[in-house]
Design a protein around this nucleic acid. Structure first.
Length: 513
DNA sequence: CGGATTTGACCGGCGC
DNA sequence: GCGCCGGTCAAATCCG
């Protein structure tokens, strides 16, 4: 099933980015003429009236466009909801069949498990769940802390569960929906998909965990004050070594991630004529975070930014999204065994730590585990063409996404937007986000998160669903649903914000342990 | 003049 | 042991 997305012209996008918050604010487009009439009555001279009439005409025309757009979006939304419902129905059927099979196979008193637990029993099952669930229905694993902003949202009575990943229990991303009505629905912004590539040095990951901290990495020998700090120190060393690489189409020398960086070196690395620049975080004098910036050899418009380490200071709000991502990725890469020999096994092993695997499954046509890197590295490729519906089990060469020619600007810009430095960036560069998050856009991840939740929540409400639970569909459903999701760019944007935020929280939680 | 950038030198890891 | 390579240092330079 396809969700058709009309790609408007850039000019229209800009206009819409401005108009949508307005609509979201007033809630009803019909209120606008009243505003204009009262405004016109204040004009006294004829020329002024004429001018005002022209303005009025233009405004009305614009309103017409906006209304049309709104209708399109509504249609799109209802389509998505109906698709979800049919999938959910299908899933319930499959669950029933699975339960029957389970009771037959395990005759000695195997109670019919709840759907979520049932899915969790299936080893290495790629799971995806999307829908509302009754309050109190909880997933095991990484529930968001009740102290967070989302915790109160859980009390609102409707929770929205969004899960996708390996269903070995708790890998699914769980999103508690906020009762937020600011988000105004879908956007027709263009966009395709991203690639989340997890590459982990299987040998180094496990070996380093066993090695003494002082011998585990170059950074350890240089930076560690003492070798006897214990497990915490070891974890820190590991986290420092873990890297998060972001590939994004970007014209600027560096990606505007909201942090302050100081360049301390530049090298021509082998195999790439483009020099690699080394930056150090200067927000705090002792911050260990570094980043490497290099342009892709095949496509110089693609900027590859690799982050290493975790910030030891308060971050500017604009930098929290990216920092959360790197922190979470580092935590994931260092939190458990990385001795798995396959993508599925590795992701499954990490799935209970972070929903990152979920992102991989959803966005990743080229999800794979590589052992080439000297350090465990997560590569977030936001330059790939439309994500083909692959399940997590489908590993394809990373190069497939690497060589992308058609770059989904909206998606990459969307990422840049919520990781970027200025709120206005949303409306300008990412119509999807600018629209989605309304007029009062903010770079605070919590707000983006809430907006994403709201979007998802609306989708489920419109469908009249409200049922379901924290259930994980079987792998057979994943492809179809993933396709539906990846066809909707604004959904991707919302999801990206939510995932990034949840990843950050998961990573922070993992770091605290 | 102070901070940021540039750039050659240096260092450690790794493979042969 | 040697050379290659990636990463870092620090003096020189640039720039606001």
């Amino acid at each position: 099933m396809e969700v058709a997305v009309e790609r408007p012209t850039p000019v229209k996008e800009e206009k819409r980015a401005d108009a949508k918050p307005e609509m979201a604010a007033i809630g009803n487009a019909s209120a606008l003429p009243i505003v204009f009439e009262s405004f016109a009555s204040t004009q006294s001279d004829a020329a002024g009236i004429k001018q005002e009439e022209r303005t009025l005409e233009a405004a009305k025309a614009e309103m017409g466009e906006v209304r049309e757009e709104n209708e399109r979006l509504k249609t799109m939304l209802s389509r998505i909801v109906s698709q979800y419902q049919s999938l959910h129905t299908h899933f319930l059927d499959v669950v029933k069949v699975h339960e029957k099979a389970a009771t037959k196979a395990k005759l000695p008193a195997t109670p019919p498990a709840p759907a979520a637990a049932d899915a969790e029993d299936a080893d290495d099952l790629v799971s995806l769940s999307l829908g509302t669930r009754p309050n109190g229905a909880r997933r095991k694993g990484h529930e968001r802390s009740s102290s967070s902003s989302g915790g109160t949202a859980a009390d609102e009575g409707h929770q929205l569960s969004l899960g996708l990943g390996i269903a070995r229990g708790s890998g699914a991303l769980s999103v508690a929906s906020a009762d937020d009505d600011k988000a105004s629905g879908a956007s027709a912004a263009p966009g395709t998909g991203g690639v989340l590539n997890l590459s982990s040095d299987s040998s180094s990951g496990a070996d380093d965990a066993a090695k003494p901290a002082a011998a585990s990495s170059p950074g350890a020998t240089r930076k560690s004050p003492s070798a006897g700090e214990g497990a915490d120190d070891e974890v820190q060393q590991q986290a420092k070594k873990a890297r998060v690489s972001v590939r994004v189409k970007c014209d600027t020398p560096t990606m505007p991630d909201g942090c302050q960086w100081r360049k301390y070196g530049q090298k021509i690395s082998k195999g790439n004529p483009c020099p690699r620049a080394y930056y150090r975080c200067t927000v705090a004098p002792q911050c260990p975070v570094r980043k490497q910036v290099q342009r892709c050899a095949e496509d110089t418009t693609i900027l590859i930014t690799t982050y290493e380490g975790q910030h030891n200071h308060q971050l500017p709000p604009a930098a929290t999204a990216m920092a959360s991502t790197t922190s979470a990725a580092a935590a994931m890469l260092t939190s458990g065994s990385t001795t798995s020999s396959s993508a599925a096994a590795s992701l499954a092993a990490h799935a209970h730590h972070l929903p990152l695997a979920a992102a991989a499954g959803m966005f990743g046509p080229t999800t794979m585990v590589s052992t080439a890197a000297s350090c465990p590295t997560i590569t977030l490729d936001l330059t790939a063409p439309a994500a083909q519906p692959h399940s997590l089990m489908h590993s394809s060469p990373y190069a497939a996404g690497y060589e992308s020619k058609a770059v989904p600007a909206a998606w990459s810009n969307g990422y840049m937007a919520y990781g970027g430095a200025h709120p206005s960036y949303y409306a300008k560069s990412s119509p999807a986000l600018g629209h989605l998050f309304g007029g009062g856009v903010s770079s605070r991840p919590e707000q983006l998160y809430a907006a994403a939740q709201s979007y998802l929540q609306r989708a489920s409400r419109l469908g009249g669903g409200g049922h379901g639970g924290a259930v994980a569909p079987p792998a057979a459903v994943t492809d179809t649903l993933a396709k539906a999701i990846t066809s909707d760019p604004s959904f991707q944007s919302a999801l990206a914000a939510a995932i990034t935020t949840v990843m950050g929280r998961g990573g922070a939680a993992a770091a605290q342990k």
